[in-house]
Computed example of a mutant assay.
Amino acid sequence: MAPGSDALLTAIAPAEPVEPGTAVIIATSGSTGEPKGVLLSADALRASATATHERLGGPGHWLLATPANYIGGLQVMVRSLLAGTACAVLPPGRFDGELFADAAAPVLREDGPRYTALVPTQLTRILDAGGRGLAAARAFDAIIIGAAATPPALRDRAAETGVPIVPAYGMSETASGCVYDGVPLDGVEVRIGPDERVLIAGPVLTHGYRLRPDLTAEALVDGWFRTGDRGRLADGRVEVLGRLDDVINTGGVKVSAAAVERALGACTGVRDSCVVGLPDAEWGEAVAAAVITDGPVEIADLRAAVRATVGAAAVPKRFEFVDALPLRGPGKVDRGAVSRLFPGIG
């Protein structure tokens, strides 16, 4: 839980009796911004940790490099507990490659598989800095990348530098990542609903939301968790296309923010981006893009790429070039804060 977050503390309701079968309550605002307490059983945590070890290559030694109050960090501790190994810990606060290398040292001295889990921002900093941090990252047997989507350019950089990443998709409600590099973990089922909604079933699921039977009934239907994400299945692999609510209605045309981000990410020099809809008197919403680059980039080239792959209506009308995207939680982009990066939006 984020320090000082009264709303998330209220969602946990520490003074109220805990629902039966609950081992832990994860406070999360998810992608909707509405604070919720996700209920997870010991069986769900164990199922996720066991399936993760099976996928990665067996129980091993772990470095905890993300906050333990979020599900990704908590699961690192659960995996270490089940493996019977000591969990090394990266001190909270500032993150850079040198600190990562120091924290990783005791794990990398161990025999057997060595693992950690990072968010995309942490991986980017390691790749940018090079040196000891990059050397340490290369020495792990697997680095799970979660909490947010891994941009294609970041995936390519990791491959080029020999960092063994495993992009993961999941959430608090699935006891952490449940789809690794497009393939569901053993015991996890994924299907796509008629509205392109990603549906998930399996032993890793939450059994509800803290003191919110209404939200529980809406999210869990016939054993399936109804995510808020759009996706598709291609050759047995899961591809997440973006949020169901990330659609921008501009001039009567519905544009997927995630599709525009993918088009921008394929452009030379673009490291990352976030696309939002801004209020506009003429268009209703105007497509706007906050972009991180590795060097000079021509806006005309970005617009041309989006027009060619997504369509004319999806071409951003406004651009802001930034050094970093505002984040909330463990590496998730704060889209509300991104909107406020544009002059006149507050």
Rank of each mutant, 00 (worst) to 15 (best):
F140C: 08
T206F: 09
R307V: 07
D245M: 05
R262C: 01
A103N: 12
G21T: 06
V76Q: 02
A259Q: 12
P59K: 06
R132G: 00
R109G: 14
V198T: 04
T52N: 11
A258R: 06
A286E: 14
T121M: 13
D222N: 11
A101V: 08
G93P: 10
A139W: 02
V333W: 01
G193L: 02
V291R: 06
P3V: 10
K36C: 03
L244M: 13
S176F: 12
D195C: 07
I25K: 01
F321Y: 10
G329W: 09
S5M: 06
G131W: 04
L341I: 07
V247D: 05
R335M: 02
S29Y: 09
L278I: 04
G231V: 08
C267L: 07
I143G: 02
F225D: 01
A27F: 01
V188E: 05
G97H: 04
D156V: 14
A337M: 03
F100C: 10
G4I: 05
R262A: 15
F319M: 07
A88I: 04
E34H: 12
H207L: 05
S31G: 10
G228I: 07
E285M: 05
G236C: 04
A88K: 04
G311I: 10
G4K: 12
P184C: 12
G336P: 00
R243V: 02
G93H: 12
P213T: 06
V297M: 08
A289Y: 06
W283Y: 13
S48Q: 14
I26Q: 11
S5H: 13
I345G: 01
V18M: 11
A288P: 01
R328P: 00
V198I: 13
D301Q: 13
P152F: 13
R318H: 15
T121Y: 12
D245K: 11
L241T: 02
A103S: 10
S256M: 11
T216Y: 09
L215S: 07
A148S: 15
G73H: 10
G329P: 12
R307L: 10
G344C: 10
R243L: 07
V24P: 00
G346F: 10
S273Q: 08
L233M: 15
G170W: 03
P194D: 15
V297S: 03
I165P: 00
F140G: 07
L39C: 03
L134I: 08
G269Q: 05
V198H: 03
T32N: 07
T32R: 08
L154A: 06
P296T: 15
F95D: 04
V338W: 07
G336V: 05
G242I: 02
V291S: 03
D334Q: 09
L185W: 05
E298I: 00
R109S: 14
R262W: 08
T150L: 15
